[in-house]
């Protein structure tokens, strides 16, 4: 039994009523997809023979990008699919509120507040604000074990703005230039 068939069998036993369809080419070396639907929730799983991992993405999704999440074995993939299909969770990590990010990482407000030397109600207010100091945001992200990055996207480039996220990075002063004299003044 190939990994997608094994996953299909497991997910059908864990979630009665799930619609699971394998979409794989004839060549078993090429991997394939498992499409899953339960009521209004859906997910797509890709098996990568090269990496020997399952890629999991909730539906709907757009674009030709990579999987949102990857799992090494059938058991952990099934656990995640149960959350997506039965609880309606989404895999896309690109859109999260601060409190959702903290929850996703399994860190309570009390724990993070203690790490940041803050009172829990203060952190609670920060998480609900629509505008915070960049230095405050940096501390929160670092308290969660991450690193804040700020980027500016232009039509032809993505530029990391490091002066706001790397405190040690000094802003280079522009040399003050003397006003140039007109040739006639010489």
């Amino acid at each position: 039994m190939n990994p997608l068939e094994e996953l299909k069998r497991e997910i059908e036993s864990k979630i009665p009523g799930v619609k699971a369809v394998i979409d794989a080419p004839r060549d078993p070396r090429a991997g394939g997809f498992l499409d899953l639907h339960l009521d209004d929730h859906g997910a797509v799983v890709e098996w990568s023979p090269r990496e020997k991992r399952f890629g999991v993405s909730s539906l709907p999704g757009t674009g030709f990008g990579g999987a949102d999440e990857a799992y090494d074995d059938v058991a952990s993939t099934v656990l995640r699919l149960v959350e997506i299909l039965k609880e309606g969770q989404h895999t896309d990590p690109k859109e999260l509120l601060l409190n959702d990010l903290r929850d996703k990482m399994g860190i309570s407000q009390e724990e993070l507040a203690k790490t940041l030397n803050l009172r829990q109600p203060t952190l609670s207010k920060m998480e609900r604000r629509r505008d915070v100091l960049i230095s405050t945001l940096r501390k929160i992200v670092e308290g969660l074990g991450g690193k804040l990055e700020i980027a500016a996207r232009f039509p032809r480039a993505l530029v990391q703005l490091v002066q706001f996220t790397e405190p040690g990075r000094a802003v280079r002063k522009r040399a003050r230039r003397k006003p140039s004299r007109l040739k006639a003044d010489r």
């Binding site: 080419p25 090429a30 990008g65 990579g66 990857a70 980027a151 032809r156």
Partner: peptide, 30 residues
Amino acid sequence: DELSGFPMNPDPPLKSDEDRMYPPNLDQIH
């Protein structure tokens, strides 16, 4: 190449933090 801000990876991984799209894989022909 022009808009994503990430260089092309000739062998893209299953999951990547780089927000770049790749054409359909030729081994997935049906």
